[in-house]
């Protein structure tokens, strides 16, 4: 029972970091209205993905049914995979390897994505044993 709050809180924090990190703590390159860069769009996409992960975190804390929480954890795993895919493949970041979005934002998002997959995966695995 205590685990659902730990998992929920972790997913909430990870989700918020994924959503708002690219705009604040590990920011993408500055927005140039004349020539917006790929990393700007990638940051916006992460905002959406991160917020969904954060909502999953809240739902984890609210829901009592183990199988529902397991489903939510699995959704978190899938979204966690999407987090690094956005800067690595789906949208990408700037070309210059010394740009902030490449040196700071991308590795931070990869790490947060891996952590989300780990938290979601472990939670789903643990909940598999719970019969409710």
């Amino acid at each position: 029972m205590k685990n659902k709050y730990v998992v929920g809180a972790l997913l909430l924090v990870l989700g918020l970091l994924i959503a708002f990190g690219p705009q604040s703590i590990f920011p993408v390159c500055e927005f140039n209205p004349e020539k917006p860069m790929k990393c700007n769009w990638m940051g916006k996409a992460e905002l959406g993905v991160g917020l969904v992960i954060a909502v999953i975190g809240v739902l984890q804390m609210v829901m009592d049914h183990a199988k529902v929480r397991q489903g939510l954890s699995m959704a978190a795993v899938l979204l966690g995979v999407l987090v690094p895919l956005l800067p690595l493949k789906l949208i990408g970041v700037c070309m210059n390897v010394h740009m902030r979005c490449v040196t700071l934002t991308r590795p931070a998002l990869i790490m947060l994505g891996v952590l989300t997959v780990l938290v979601g995966g472990l939670s789903a695995f643990a909940l598999n044993k719970v019969e409710k």
Binding site: V97, H98, R100, V102, T103, L104, P107, A108, I110, M111
Partner: peptide, 13 residues
């Protein structure tokens, strides 16, 4: 390792 390797370019810059 999670800091010094992925963020090496940022640290150097």
């Amino acid at each position: 390792a999670m800091i010094v390797f992925p963020f090496s370019t940022y640290i150097g810059d």
